[in-house]
Design a binder for these strands. Sequence first.
DNA 1: GTCTAATCGAGACGGTACGTCGGGTCTTTGA
DNA 2: TCAAAGACCCGACGTACCGTCTCGATTAGAC
Lengths: 208, 208, 208, 208
Amino acid sequence: MTSEAATVGKRAPGRPRSDATQRAIMDATIELVGSENYPDVTIEKIAARAKVGKQSIYRWWPTKADLVLDTFTLHSLKAMPPVIQTADAFADLEQDIARHFTFMSAPLVSKGLRSLIAEAQYDPEFRRKLYENVHRVRCEALRRAFRHGIALGQIREDIDFDALAHMIHGAFWYRFLSGTVYKSDAEYAKNIVALLRPGIATGSANHH
Amino acid sequence: MTSEAATVGKRAPGRPRSDATQRAIMDATIELVGSENYPDVTIEKIAARAKVGKQSIYRWWPTKADLVLDTFTLHSLKAMPPVIQTADAFADLEQDIARHFTFMSAPLVSKGLRSLIAEAQYDPEFRRKLYENVHRVRCEALRRAFRHGIALGQIREDIDFDALAHMIHGAFWYRFLSGTVYKSDAEYAKNIVALLRPGIATGSANHH
Amino acid sequence: MTSEAATVGKRAPGRPRSDATQRAIMDATIELVGSENYPDVTIEKIAARAKVGKQSIYRWWPTKADLVLDTFTLHSLKAMPPVIQTADAFADLEQDIARHFTFMSAPLVSKGLRSLIAEAQYDPEFRRKLYENVHRVRCEALRRAFRHGIALGQIREDIDFDALAHMIHGAFWYRFLSGTVYKSDAEYAKNIVALLRPGIATGSANHH
Amino acid sequence: MTSEAATVGKRAPGRPRSDATQRAIMDATIELVGSENYPDVTIEKIAARAKVGKQSIYRWWPTKADLVLDTFTLHSLKAMPPVIQTADAFADLEQDIARHFTFMSAPLVSKGLRSLIAEAQYDPEFRRKLYENVHRVRCEALRRAFRHGIALGQIREDIDFDALAHMIHGAFWYRFLSGTVYKSDAEYAKNIVALLRPGIATGSANHH
DNA sequence: GTCTAATCGAGACGGTACGTCGGGTCTTTGA
DNA sequence: TCAAAGACCCGACGTACCGTCTCGATTAGAC
């Protein structure tokens, strides 16, 4: 949320930040991102729709990208609870991936994602922020699934987990970027795991 | 390319399109894409640098995105010759992937890619164009490698080649989007193939 | 008409100038001047409507203003025959003025006039051309009427004919510029002559 | 002036219009009208010279013509104080006319006038505005002189004052439009009054 | 209760780029 | 050589947003 202040005790003087304003801005952002092409999502339109002065936006978010990222992570990304782990690590993995794919494919979410991806191309710094808020969260979910598999003795320890995670998520991003349509999210997840399983399951030889 | 094929014989009336102008525009585009952030690559700057009227750009390319795509595909993507196939399909695959990764990571190429990715997020139609010119070319290279492997009896036939290609390229795009750094392109390619090999090589069981 | 050539005998080499083209250009000019606001009468539209290359216009007329003036004088101004003189010089004068006013007020003529007036404000040289083709012609008509009156002994000789002509025509131009509406052209002419008559008729004292 | 009167009391919300900006725009307009041909007086140049955004011009003046008219009336036309009336109405009239002619002939004023005349030809609505701001002001000055003459018993009451005013001002406009040069403004005024006097003075018969 | 300080809506401001229009010049083919 | 077609360089158009600024109005705690 950018400014945190807090510092306990002493309140800053002056009129305090209005929550209603913040909410109005974020709501307007969501509506616009959902209904317009991204270049048409302008600060001016957001301010107009939120019935807010432009300054009130600039006061709290340095760029439009940050506003969208903030809005998006707050309202969307954190909404997905972790998978409940079972005795079958591969089934867990598959379920986690499928669920993630479905979530990211929801119309509003994917519209927001496109906005963020576009912005991230311009600016390395924002790319880093995006990584922190979007990619890393998912990587940790995957690692958790891997560790569970290792603990169960179903997944080998000597694997390049980075490359593995890249491939799993990359499959999603590739489809996302290229606009390719695939049978279904569940099928997609199933086939990905099927292809990877022999390479990571214990007991399978890994000759090269 | 916006060229309308000419239908042989009869030339269109009027002064013909100037090659010099077209080249100047594309050269200026390359230079600017290489030296500026994408939002700062404006039609106006391109025209100025190419010493060309803006109209001469708009006459031939409907949007900046189309110009960049055209320029990019013409000067870059088609420059990569196909891999020479050997008796080891997996070595071929690895080499093809590694070479592709290296090519796409070259500073100027990746700057252009970022521009195209950003534009593609705005406009589904442009996403399709981008697919035609960038993704499909690579998919065919991969398919060629797969078919070779099948012919050699080294790769199984009952595989979801789409999901496979998505994972391989997706790994690259994931790294590209997230800004993650990986040891080296060669290593990256090697580990990806290592992880996938058991799942696609003949003779390996695919129990699930 | 700008280029005259003629020089008898020897014809210039090459394809001769096409009369059809000239006519088409002028016709298109008249139509456009009559139907559009003057700034919207562009060389490009004239060429398009005449189905003529722009160059064919520029070849014969240096500026749009010259084209309009040429067209206007050819098709309009020279169309007014001289007044038949009677034994009453003031009646002749009144008739001449009234007829002129009526002619200049015709919708198409006045649209053309406005174009010419506008152009003339920009460029002193064109102002001179306009004077030659529009104002001088009328001044001579007036002088002819004055001389007739003098010959008849009805108009005094010791008058500032320039100032007089300026006032008579000026009245028209004032009305034209200001957009003022007056009862009728005939009435207008009559009242103007009535006001001036005592000052110019013989036998009237001119005390100052 | 585009100012909306404010209706007293309550100020409009938002940042108020900047006087400095407005002044800078008008100053730049005057300078440019004085130094360039009218078609070269572009909004873009005015904005550049005034160091002002184009929008700040368009915000307050719908067209270039309105800006020029505003500037012109504000800085020029209202600058001329009324004539002091004496016991000789014709001398007053002559002085008023001469002074007006001289004023309108001043280089900067006449450059501005040409701009306004040109614009007025395009657009009937602007013609009306011009009438309100330029012609009417003068007409009232003349009427005042006439009324004074009537009160003094020097000018007849049964006269077509419209036609009369048209002739007097028309003489000026004719000279202005045609580019004709006359001895001097004072002489011009004198001869005009001399020609008209017998037609309007009391005691003179008006036989027709 | 003022006083001080920050926020809020509103919208003017100096800028930059947009995509379009027209100007006047040029370069083709064909008559 | 002229003519039609139309590409070319150029400059201005009027608009949209940018991010900053200046207003009056408001909303707190500090005095």
